[in-house]
């Protein structure tokens, strides 16, 4: 299989609010400062247009609460 080198493009941050415990790891380590904690201490994608879909937030989420859906 030949892998295409095109970068994945973000479609959606799927954040499971019931599982998110608001630790802030995703917010702190997002290379593009896309994420924030809202007034209920739940992660939200405040600036989704800046997302490069690197998925580090998804990989580092201790609560399996973030899923990056790409096109």
């Amino acid at each position: 299989m030949v892998e295409t080198q095109t970068k994945p493009k973000l479609k959606e941050h799927r954040i499971n609010r019931a599982w998110c415990k608001g630790c802030g790891i995703c917010v702190a380590f997002c290379p593009k400062q896309v994420l924030e904690l809202d007034d209920q201490d739940k992660a939200v994608a405040a600036r989704p247009e800046d997302c490069i879909a690197c998925k580090l937030c998804e990989l580092r989420c201790p609560d399996l609460a973030i899923e990056i859906i790409t096109e």
Partner: peptide
């Protein structure tokens, strides 16, 4: 996501504290 096929979803959210690294180990293992 496909990794969810490997977990028993009904027990989530898990018992670990906010920010506990064990969840990240679980995530990587999946």
């Amino acid at each position: 996501m496909a990794v969810k096929d490997f977990i028993r979803e009904r027990f989530f959210p898990h018992i670990w504290c906010p920010g506990c690294g064990h969840g990240i180990v679980l995530n990587s293992l999946l």
